[in-house]
Computed example of a mutant assay.
Amino acid sequence: MRDLKNTGFTDRLTAQQEAKKALLARFKPKTAAPDPEFDKLAAKRAAEKEALRQQHELAKAERRREKAEKEAAQLDAQREAQEAIDAEKRAARKERKQLTKEEQKARRDARYAARKARR
């Protein structure tokens, strides 16, 4: 073949590289002009998402606070019940100590007689 254009190897190589770049450039995604409506919608969605997240956080904090209050109330009720039981025990112990020996013997005899009467 005859070289009619008198191009050398390097000229053909650069032409081939430029053609390849042009072909690849056709398939690259083109940058679109920024749409102001899209930006407004995106900002609105982000604000709604943030507000929803804050609502969830507030609800979660409220549930934790209610749970803590409920547990505290249960502990108070248990403590009061235990104090009442302890007070009853102390009162019974004090009553037993106040009884004289004769009264203790009389009570014991009455219990014994009641037990015998049941048989």
Rank of each mutant, 00 (worst) to 15 (best):
D35L: 00
F27Q: 15
R2K: 09
A33H: 10
D3N: 08
R45L: 01
L23S: 14
K30C: 07
T100Y: 03
K70F: 03
E37G: 08
R96I: 06
A25D: 09
K70Q: 04
Q74G: 05
D11P: 07
E50N: 01
E95R: 15
Q82P: 02
K28A: 15
D76N: 08
T7K: 14
R64Y: 11
K44T: 07
D35I: 00
M1D: 09
E66L: 03
D86R: 15
Q55K: 07
T100D: 04
L75D: 15
E57S: 08
P36N: 00
R26F: 10
Q55P: 07
E57Y: 10
K60M: 10
L75V: 08
A33R: 08
M1F: 05
K101C: 06
F9D: 00
Q55G: 04
D35S: 01
A91N: 05
R12Q: 01
P34I: 05
E71L: 12
R12M: 02
Q55S: 06
M1E: 09
K5Y: 15
H56W: 10
E80C: 04
D35N: 04
L23W: 14
A51R: 10
E95P: 02
M1Y: 10
K67P: 01
A51S: 14
K94D: 14
E62R: 00
E102F: 09
R63I: 12
F27Y: 12
A73R: 09
E102M: 03
E80V: 05
L41F: 01
D3Y: 05
K40M: 05
A22G: 04
E62H: 09
Q74F: 01
A15D: 11
Q78A: 03
A43S: 06
A81Y: 02
K49M: 03
A15S: 08
Q104L: 12
R26T: 06
R63G: 06
E48K: 02
L58N: 13
T14N: 12
R2V: 11
K28T: 15
E88T: 04
Q104A: 07
K5R: 14
R107V: 09
A81V: 00
E50C: 02
M1L: 08
K30D: 04
K97E: 11
A32M: 05
R63E: 14
I85S: 05
L24T: 10
E95N: 11
A59L: 03
R90A: 15
D3E: 02
Q55R: 08
L23K: 14
L4P: 15
Q55E: 12
F27R: 06
L13T: 13
K67C: 05
I85M: 11
Q55N: 11
A47N: 04
D76G: 04
R26H: 09
T14P: 00
F38C: 03
D35K: 00
A81C: 03
R63L: 13
A25H: 02
R93T: 11
R12E: 01
E83Y: 00
E83V: 00
E103L: 01
R12W: 01
A15F: 06
E37I: 06
L23F: 13
F9H: 15
K28S: 14
E88N: 07
A46S: 07
E103Q: 12
T100L: 00
R64H: 08
K20C: 05
A51F: 09
E80P: 01
L23P: 03
Q98A: 14
K101A: 09
F27D: 15
L4G: 11
E103Y: 05
E88Y: 03
R63P: 11
L23V: 13
R93L: 13
R12S: 02
R63F: 04
A19E: 11
